[in-house]
Amino acid sequence: MTPITGHRILLVEDNDLNRTLVRTVLARSDHPVARHHTIIEAGDLAAARAHLAAAPVDLILLDMQLPDGHGLDLARELSRQPPPARPVIIALTASVLPEQQNDVRAAGCDDFLGKPYRPHQLIDMLAAHLPAQDPAATP
């Protein structure tokens, strides 16, 4: 049996509890999109860049206010890359004012999920942006 890694999701978030929450939500969900996945966690932009340099990811859940900079800085860097190589970027932030949301779109994020979110909203968001898993791969 071939090992299935599923989707690779990079979670850039400085708050421990909020990282735990994402992890727990994905682990508890029985939605197909959550069935096989790998979460790579980064507490700041430097760690996120290091992870991205080491191996590509399919999707980034990106917080905005990070200790070493703003999440949009990373989004802008990545949006300069050609689309096939570029991961889907979802802003996951408590900065939800309309102008802040506009900034998020302008910086090249694909979608926006404001905090506080309900667990199913996160799953729906992932399902909307990640291709369905190969049924043959499902045990």
Binding site: N15, L17, L21, Q65, A94, S95, V96, P116, R118
Partner: peptide, 17 residues
């Protein structure tokens, strides 16, 4: 708004679970 939403995120998220 940002600061109030951050702890609420964990409260709502975990209680929803």
């Amino acid at each position: 708004s940002h600061e109030l939403r951050t702890p609420l995120n964990a409260i709502i998220g975990f209680s929803d679970l």
